[in-house]
Design a binder for these strands. Sequence first.
DNA 1: CAGAATCCTATGAGATACTG
DNA 2: CAGTATCTCATAGGATTCTG
Lengths: 142, 142
Amino acid sequence: MGQGDAGVTIDPTRKAKSGGLPDRQPVWAYDPLCPVRDVLDRIGDKWSTLILCTLGAGPLRFSALQRVIPDISKRMLTQTLRDLERDGLVARTVFPTKPPSVEYRLTSLGVTILEPLGFLVQWADRSHAEIRQARLVFDAAS
Amino acid sequence: MGQGDAGVTIDPTRKAKSGGLPDRQPVWAYDPLCPVRDVLDRIGDKWSTLILCTLGAGPLRFSALQRVIPDISKRMLTQTLRDLERDGLVARTVFPTKPPSVEYRLTSLGVTILEPLGFLVQWADRSHAEIRQARLVFDAAS
DNA sequence: CAGAATCCTATGAGATACTG
DNA sequence: CAGTATCTCATAGGATTCTG
């Protein structure tokens, strides 16, 4: 990363100059501690997006989440919920009933990720056929 | 996959019914082999989004990518590029010069992911301060 | 230059059993 | 019910060395 511009974050809206000279200095400086990466790496695990999308439809209790996402282990569900709570995306509410029940819901911040996440999911949905096809072609050629 | 409603994919645009009854049947059926997850899990690794955003500004050679992303190892750069190529998001062109040079560029499909990815990056950029703050609060309370 | 091959370690994540 | 505590294994991913 250069001087002056050190630590600039990811900016995918940045356009290449026409002609796109290949080997110049980086279009955007890169910072290993980039806050965008810090946040995205957390979301990029196996379960976070799935849980966020699920809670996007409304609050659910622990066991209900397990039923909706049958192939997650209690351990990972607990851990992922904790991480999301720590990041302020999910709120955890304990109801002191006889057998305790705990409700998870998106925070107001958590709700705001639904839209960008939704665009990505839509893209994946629209593109997965083309991607699968590309994989077939690639694997056949290798 | 599936007949009828089985295997319905992720749909974050789905809204909860008003009142949001907590413990009903899942709002959307969940499929471990969901194509959306299949695609997103691939993008969700440590380097894919970074490389896609970088190439979004224009094609780059292998060594140039390494300079832009200094903390990636050759091994992971090669592997991630291969995976992206396999998925049809990146095209690899070899120029038979004396020391061989290889150019990587987004395919037309690859370009289409820039927009949804950009929204997520923008969200991360706007939210990282709030997230960091939430982490401080959470860690102080624990 | 652009990798391929190999080695090694840290972590992600499942399975199971226990608890308030 | 909603976890916690272990144990274990598979994989992601870094460092290093070799090659056309």
